[in-house]
Nucleic acid binder design. Structure first.
Lengths: 152, 152
DNA sequence: TTTCATGTAACTTTATATGTTACATGATGA
DNA sequence: TCATCATGTAACATATAAAGTTACATGAAA
Protein backbone atom coordinates (compact mmCIF):
# COMPACT_ATOMS: atom_id res chain seq x y z
CA UNK A 1 0.00 0.00 0.00
CA UNK A 2 1.28 3.44 -0.82
CA UNK A 3 1.56 5.40 2.39
CA UNK A 4 -0.85 8.24 3.02
CA UNK A 5 0.98 11.46 3.89
CA UNK A 6 -2.01 13.78 4.01
CA UNK A 7 -1.95 14.15 7.78
CA UNK A 8 1.74 14.94 7.68
CA UNK A 9 1.12 17.36 4.84
CA UNK A 10 -1.80 19.24 6.31
CA UNK A 11 -0.02 19.62 9.64
CA UNK A 12 2.96 21.04 7.81
CA UNK A 13 0.68 23.57 6.16
CA UNK A 14 -1.02 24.57 9.39
CA UNK A 15 2.24 24.97 11.21
CA UNK A 16 3.60 27.17 8.45
CA UNK A 17 0.49 29.29 8.61
CA UNK A 18 0.69 29.59 12.39
CA UNK A 19 4.05 31.34 12.06
CA UNK A 20 2.60 34.51 10.52
CA UNK A 21 -0.79 36.19 10.07
CA UNK A 22 -1.70 35.33 6.47
CA UNK A 23 -3.80 34.78 4.47
CA UNK A 24 -1.78 32.33 2.38
CA UNK A 25 -2.57 31.33 -1.17
CA UNK A 26 -2.54 27.67 -2.18
CA UNK A 27 0.20 28.68 -4.58
CA UNK A 28 2.44 29.98 -1.77
CA UNK A 29 1.80 26.98 0.46
CA UNK A 30 2.40 24.60 -2.41
CA UNK A 31 5.80 26.15 -3.05
CA UNK A 32 6.77 25.80 0.59
CA UNK A 33 5.66 22.17 0.52
CA UNK A 34 7.14 21.45 -2.87
CA UNK A 35 3.86 20.25 -4.30
CA UNK A 36 0.88 21.36 -6.33
CA UNK A 37 -1.72 24.03 -5.32
CA UNK A 38 -4.56 21.62 -6.04
CA UNK A 39 -3.10 19.14 -3.57
CA UNK A 40 -3.15 21.87 -0.94
CA UNK A 41 -6.78 22.71 -1.65
CA UNK A 42 -7.63 19.06 -1.50
CA UNK A 43 -6.16 18.35 1.90
CA UNK A 44 -7.51 21.65 3.28
CA UNK A 45 -11.07 21.06 2.10
CA UNK A 46 -12.04 18.91 5.07
CA UNK A 47 -10.60 21.38 7.54
CA UNK A 48 -12.57 24.19 5.95
CA UNK A 49 -15.84 22.26 6.25
CA UNK A 50 -15.32 21.74 9.97
CA UNK A 51 -14.25 25.36 10.38
CA UNK A 52 -10.61 24.96 11.37
CA UNK A 53 -9.58 27.18 8.45
CA UNK A 54 -11.29 29.70 6.17
CA UNK A 55 -10.66 30.38 2.52
CA UNK A 56 -11.33 33.56 0.52
CA UNK A 57 -11.33 34.05 -3.21
CA UNK A 58 -10.02 36.97 -5.23
CA UNK A 59 -7.38 39.59 -4.52
CA UNK A 60 -5.91 39.26 -1.05
CA UNK A 61 -7.61 35.92 -0.71
CA UNK A 62 -6.22 32.60 0.44
CA UNK A 63 -6.25 30.45 3.56
CA UNK A 64 -6.54 31.61 7.17
CA UNK A 65 -6.53 29.70 10.44
CA UNK A 66 -9.94 29.97 12.10
CA UNK A 67 -9.61 27.94 15.26
CA UNK A 68 -7.97 27.98 18.67
CA UNK A 69 -4.74 26.06 18.14
CA UNK A 70 -4.71 24.99 21.78
CA UNK A 71 -8.09 23.32 21.37
CA UNK A 72 -7.50 21.30 18.22
CA UNK A 73 -5.57 18.03 18.40
CA UNK A 74 -3.84 16.01 15.72
CA UNK A 75 -6.68 13.53 16.09
CA UNK A 76 -9.16 16.28 15.20
CA UNK A 77 -7.18 17.05 12.08
CA UNK A 78 -7.07 13.37 11.22
CA UNK A 79 -10.86 13.25 11.58
CA UNK A 80 -11.17 16.32 9.36
CA UNK A 81 -9.36 14.36 6.66
CA UNK A 82 -12.16 11.82 6.79
CA UNK A 83 -10.60 9.19 9.07
CA UNK A 84 -8.53 7.44 6.42
CA UNK A 85 -7.27 3.90 7.22
CA UNK A 86 -4.55 3.80 9.87
CA UNK A 87 -3.20 0.29 9.35
CA UNK A 88 -1.55 -1.04 6.25
CA UNK A 89 -2.66 -4.58 7.06
CA UNK A 90 -6.10 -6.05 7.30
CA UNK A 91 -8.09 -9.24 7.09
CA UNK A 92 -8.55 -11.08 3.83
CA UNK A 93 -12.29 -11.29 4.38
CA UNK A 94 -14.21 -9.25 6.89
CA UNK A 95 -17.11 -11.58 7.70
CA UNK A 96 -15.98 -15.03 6.62
CA UNK A 97 -18.09 -18.16 6.89
CA UNK A 98 -14.94 -20.24 7.26
CA UNK A 99 -14.24 -20.88 10.95
CA UNK A 100 -10.51 -20.94 10.34
CA UNK A 101 -10.66 -17.46 8.93
CA UNK A 102 -12.89 -16.35 11.80
CA UNK A 103 -10.28 -17.52 14.28
CA UNK A 104 -7.53 -15.71 12.41
CA UNK A 105 -9.58 -12.53 12.16
CA UNK A 106 -10.40 -12.59 15.86
CA UNK A 107 -6.73 -12.81 16.80
CA UNK A 108 -5.60 -10.16 14.37
CA UNK A 109 -8.47 -7.79 15.12
CA UNK A 110 -7.54 -7.73 18.76
CA UNK A 111 -4.03 -6.61 17.91
CA UNK A 112 -5.18 -4.24 15.17
CA UNK A 113 -7.85 -2.60 17.30
CA UNK A 114 -5.47 -2.06 20.20
CA UNK A 115 -2.89 -0.45 17.94
CA UNK A 116 -5.43 1.81 16.28
CA UNK A 117 -6.84 2.90 19.62
CA UNK A 118 -3.39 3.74 20.93
CA UNK A 119 -2.49 5.69 17.82
CA UNK A 120 -5.67 7.74 18.01
CA UNK A 121 -5.15 8.33 21.71
CA UNK A 122 -1.62 9.59 21.09
CA UNK A 123 -2.79 11.89 18.33
CA UNK A 124 -5.47 13.17 20.68
CA UNK A 125 -2.85 14.16 23.23
CA UNK A 126 -1.09 16.63 20.96
CA UNK A 127 -2.60 20.03 20.13
CA UNK A 128 -1.59 22.23 17.25
CA UNK A 129 -0.39 24.74 19.84
CA UNK A 130 1.98 22.17 21.29
CA UNK A 131 3.33 21.47 17.81
CA UNK A 132 3.89 25.21 17.35
CA UNK A 133 5.68 25.43 20.66
CA UNK A 134 7.99 22.60 19.68
CA UNK A 135 8.69 24.36 16.40
CA UNK A 136 9.59 27.60 18.18
CA UNK A 137 12.14 25.68 20.23
CA UNK A 138 13.66 24.22 17.11
CA UNK A 139 13.77 27.63 15.47
CA UNK A 140 15.53 29.08 18.51
CA UNK A 141 18.08 26.30 18.51
CA UNK A 142 18.85 26.80 14.85
CA UNK A 143 19.02 30.58 15.07
CA UNK A 144 22.12 30.20 17.23
CA UNK A 145 23.68 28.63 14.18
CA UNK A 146 22.52 31.44 11.90
CA UNK A 147 20.21 29.33 9.81
CA UNK A 148 16.69 29.75 8.53
CA UNK A 149 13.78 27.40 8.77
CA UNK A 150 14.14 26.58 5.12
CA UNK A 151 17.64 25.37 4.61
CA UNK A 152 16.44 22.46 2.44
CA UNK B 1 -3.47 2.47 0.16
CA UNK B 2 -4.64 -1.00 -0.63
CA UNK B 3 -4.51 -3.07 2.51
CA UNK B 4 -2.03 -5.92 2.81
CA UNK B 5 -3.73 -9.22 3.70
CA UNK B 6 -0.72 -11.50 3.47
CA UNK B 7 -0.45 -12.04 7.22
CA UNK B 8 -4.13 -12.87 7.40
CA UNK B 9 -3.72 -15.15 4.41
CA UNK B 10 -0.69 -17.06 5.57
CA UNK B 11 -2.17 -17.61 9.01
CA UNK B 12 -5.27 -18.99 7.39
CA UNK B 13 -3.12 -21.43 5.46
CA UNK B 14 -1.13 -22.53 8.48
CA UNK B 15 -4.24 -23.06 10.57
CA UNK B 16 -5.80 -25.15 7.83
CA UNK B 17 -2.65 -27.23 7.64
CA UNK B 18 -2.55 -27.69 11.40
CA UNK B 19 -5.91 -29.48 11.28
CA UNK B 20 -4.56 -32.56 9.49
CA UNK B 21 -1.22 -34.18 8.67
CA UNK B 22 -0.59 -33.15 5.07
CA UNK B 23 1.34 -32.49 2.95
CA UNK B 24 -0.86 -29.99 1.13
CA UNK B 25 -0.37 -28.87 -2.43
CA UNK B 26 -0.54 -25.18 -3.30
CA UNK B 27 -3.46 -26.13 -5.50
CA UNK B 28 -5.44 -27.56 -2.57
CA UNK B 29 -4.66 -24.65 -0.29
CA UNK B 30 -5.51 -22.15 -3.00
CA UNK B 31 -8.94 -23.71 -3.44
CA UNK B 32 -9.61 -23.50 0.29
CA UNK B 33 -8.52 -19.86 0.27
CA UNK B 34 -10.29 -19.03 -2.96
CA UNK B 35 -7.14 -17.72 -4.59
CA UNK B 36 -4.32 -18.77 -6.90
CA UNK B 37 -1.64 -21.42 -6.21
CA UNK B 38 1.09 -18.95 -7.07
CA UNK B 39 -0.20 -16.60 -4.40
CA UNK B 40 0.10 -19.41 -1.87
CA UNK B 41 3.67 -20.17 -2.92
CA UNK B 42 4.50 -16.50 -2.71
CA UNK B 43 3.29 -15.96 0.85
CA UNK B 44 4.79 -19.27 1.97
CA UNK B 45 8.25 -18.60 0.51
CA UNK B 46 9.43 -16.54 3.48
CA UNK B 47 8.21 -19.13 5.96
CA UNK B 48 10.07 -21.84 4.11
CA UNK B 49 13.33 -19.89 4.19
CA UNK B 50 13.12 -19.53 7.96
CA UNK B 51 12.13 -23.17 8.30
CA UNK B 52 8.58 -22.87 9.62
CA UNK B 53 7.35 -24.98 6.71
CA UNK B 54 8.89 -27.38 4.21
CA UNK B 55 7.96 -27.94 0.60
CA UNK B 56 8.51 -31.00 -1.57
CA UNK B 57 8.23 -31.36 -5.31
CA UNK B 58 6.78 -34.19 -7.34
CA UNK B 59 4.25 -36.88 -6.54
CA UNK B 60 3.02 -36.72 -2.95
CA UNK B 61 4.73 -33.37 -2.58
CA UNK B 62 3.40 -30.13 -1.19
CA UNK B 63 3.65 -28.11 2.00
CA UNK B 64 4.26 -29.38 5.51
CA UNK B 65 4.48 -27.61 8.84
CA UNK B 66 8.01 -27.91 10.21
CA UNK B 67 7.94 -25.98 13.47
CA UNK B 68 6.60 -26.20 17.00
CA UNK B 69 3.32 -24.31 16.81
CA UNK B 70 3.57 -23.38 20.47
CA UNK B 71 6.90 -21.65 19.87
CA UNK B 72 6.02 -19.51 16.85
CA UNK B 73 4.08 -16.27 17.32
CA UNK B 74 2.12 -14.18 14.87
CA UNK B 75 4.95 -11.69 15.09
CA UNK B 76 7.38 -14.37 13.91
CA UNK B 77 5.13 -15.05 10.94
CA UNK B 78 4.93 -11.33 10.24
CA UNK B 79 8.72 -11.17 10.28
CA UNK B 80 8.88 -14.16 7.93
CA UNK B 81 6.83 -12.13 5.46
CA UNK B 82 9.62 -9.56 5.44
CA UNK B 83 8.24 -7.04 7.94
CA UNK B 84 5.93 -5.20 5.54
CA UNK B 85 4.72 -1.72 6.57
CA UNK B 86 2.24 -1.77 9.45
CA UNK B 87 0.86 1.75 9.20
CA UNK B 88 -1.06 3.20 6.30
CA UNK B 89 0.14 6.70 7.16
CA UNK B 90 3.61 8.15 7.13
CA UNK B 91 5.62 11.31 6.89
CA UNK B 92 5.82 13.28 3.67
CA UNK B 93 9.59 13.43 3.90
CA UNK B 94 11.69 11.26 6.14
CA UNK B 95 14.67 13.52 6.80
CA UNK B 96 13.50 17.02 5.96
CA UNK B 97 15.66 20.12 6.16
CA UNK B 98 12.59 22.21 6.88
CA UNK B 99 12.23 22.70 10.63
CA UNK B 100 8.45 22.83 10.34
CA UNK B 101 8.43 19.42 8.82
CA UNK B 102 10.87 18.17 11.42
CA UNK B 103 8.52 19.28 14.17
CA UNK B 104 5.59 17.56 12.47
CA UNK B 105 7.58 14.38 11.93
CA UNK B 106 8.70 14.29 15.54
CA UNK B 107 5.15 14.51 16.80
CA UNK B 108 3.77 11.96 14.38
CA UNK B 109 6.67 9.56 14.79
CA UNK B 110 6.06 9.36 18.50
CA UNK B 111 2.47 8.30 17.90
CA UNK B 112 3.36 6.03 14.99
CA UNK B 113 6.19 4.31 16.82
CA UNK B 114 4.07 3.66 19.89
CA UNK B 115 1.28 2.16 17.81
CA UNK B 116 3.68 -0.04 15.85
CA UNK B 117 5.37 -1.25 19.01
CA UNK B 118 2.05 -2.14 20.59
CA UNK B 119 0.89 -3.97 17.50
CA UNK B 120 4.08 -6.00 17.32
CA UNK B 121 3.87 -6.75 21.03
CA UNK B 122 0.30 -8.00 20.68
CA UNK B 123 1.26 -10.18 17.74
CA UNK B 124 4.13 -11.53 19.80
CA UNK B 125 1.73 -12.65 22.52
CA UNK B 126 -0.19 -15.05 20.31
CA UNK B 127 1.29 -18.37 19.21
CA UNK B 128 0.04 -20.49 16.35
CA UNK B 129 -0.91 -23.11 18.94
CA UNK B 130 -3.16 -20.60 20.68
CA UNK B 131 -4.80 -19.82 17.37
CA UNK B 132 -5.36 -23.52 16.80
CA UNK B 133 -6.85 -23.90 20.25
CA UNK B 134 -9.27 -21.07 19.58
CA UNK B 135 -10.23 -22.70 16.31
CA UNK B 136 -10.94 -26.01 18.03
CA UNK B 137 -13.31 -24.22 20.37
CA UNK B 138 -15.12 -22.66 17.45
CA UNK B 139 -15.33 -26.02 15.70
CA UNK B 140 -16.79 -27.58 18.82
CA UNK B 141 -19.38 -24.88 19.16
CA UNK B 142 -20.46 -25.24 15.57
CA UNK B 143 -20.56 -29.06 15.71
CA UNK B 144 -23.44 -28.77 18.14
CA UNK B 145 -25.27 -27.12 15.28
CA UNK B 146 -24.30 -29.83 12.81
CA UNK B 147 -22.23 -27.63 10.57
CA UNK B 148 -18.82 -27.95 8.99
CA UNK B 149 -15.94 -25.54 9.06
CA UNK B 150 -16.63 -24.60 5.49
CA UNK B 151 -20.16 -23.43 5.35
CA UNK B 152 -19.24 -20.40 3.25
C1' DT C 1 -13.99 44.28 -16.59
C1' DT C 2 -9.64 42.48 -15.74
C1' DT C 3 -7.10 39.97 -12.47
C1' DC C 4 -6.59 36.91 -8.81
C1' DA C 5 -7.70 32.97 -5.99
C1' DT C 6 -10.42 29.16 -4.75
C1' DG C 7 -13.50 24.81 -6.11
C1' DT C 8 -13.66 20.86 -8.55
C1' DA C 9 -13.79 17.48 -12.17
C1' DA C 10 -10.99 14.69 -15.05
C1' DC C 11 -6.92 12.71 -16.22
C1' DT C 12 -2.11 11.01 -15.45
C1' DT C 13 1.43 9.05 -12.69
C1' DT C 14 3.18 6.13 -9.16
C1' DA C 15 3.24 2.49 -5.76
C1' DT C 16 1.75 -1.81 -4.15
C1' DA C 17 -1.02 -5.90 -3.45
C1' DT C 18 -3.14 -9.47 -5.87
C1' DG C 19 -4.20 -12.46 -9.80
C1' DT C 20 -2.63 -15.04 -13.92
C1' DT C 21 0.23 -17.29 -17.44
C1' DA C 22 4.18 -19.61 -18.81
C1' DC C 23 7.90 -22.30 -18.21
C1' DA C 24 12.03 -24.24 -15.74
C1' DT C 25 13.39 -27.47 -12.04
C1' DG C 26 13.24 -31.50 -9.64
C1' DA C 27 10.96 -35.69 -7.53
C1' DT C 28 7.99 -39.79 -8.01
C1' DG C 29 6.26 -43.82 -10.19
C1' DA C 30 5.28 -46.70 -14.13
C1' DT D 1 13.91 -43.76 -19.40
C1' DC D 2 10.00 -40.96 -19.47
C1' DA D 3 5.48 -39.13 -18.34
C1' DT D 4 3.40 -36.87 -14.52
C1' DC D 5 3.13 -34.04 -10.67
C1' DA D 6 4.36 -30.18 -7.75
C1' DT D 7 7.17 -26.40 -6.54
C1' DG D 8 10.04 -21.94 -7.98
C1' DT D 9 9.95 -17.93 -10.30
C1' DA D 10 9.78 -14.50 -13.85
C1' DA D 11 6.75 -11.74 -16.43
C1' DC D 12 2.66 -9.67 -17.18
C1' DA D 13 -2.12 -8.13 -15.99
C1' DT D 14 -5.47 -6.11 -12.83
C1' DA D 15 -7.14 -3.36 -8.89
C1' DT D 16 -6.83 0.21 -5.63
C1' DA D 17 -5.44 4.46 -3.74
C1' DA D 18 -2.40 8.54 -3.13
C1' DA D 19 -0.29 12.29 -5.38
C1' DG D 20 0.47 15.26 -9.27
C1' DT D 21 -1.41 17.89 -13.25
C1' DT D 22 -4.53 20.29 -16.45
C1' DA D 23 -8.53 22.75 -17.42
C1' DC D 24 -12.15 25.49 -16.43
C1' DA D 25 -16.01 27.42 -13.58
C1' DT D 26 -17.03 30.57 -9.68
C1' DG D 27 -16.65 34.57 -7.19
C1' DA D 28 -14.13 38.60 -5.00
C1' DA D 29 -11.20 42.72 -5.34
C1' DA D 30 -8.92 46.42 -7.77
Amino acid sequence: MKQDSRLSGVLHVLLHMAQQPGPFTSETLARAMDTNPVVIRRIMAGLREIGYVRSEKGHGGGWTIACDLSKVTLRDIYAALGNPPLLAMGNRTESPGCLVEQAVNAALDQAFDDAEALLLARLGEVTLAMLGEDLRKRLGARKHQGMSAHRA
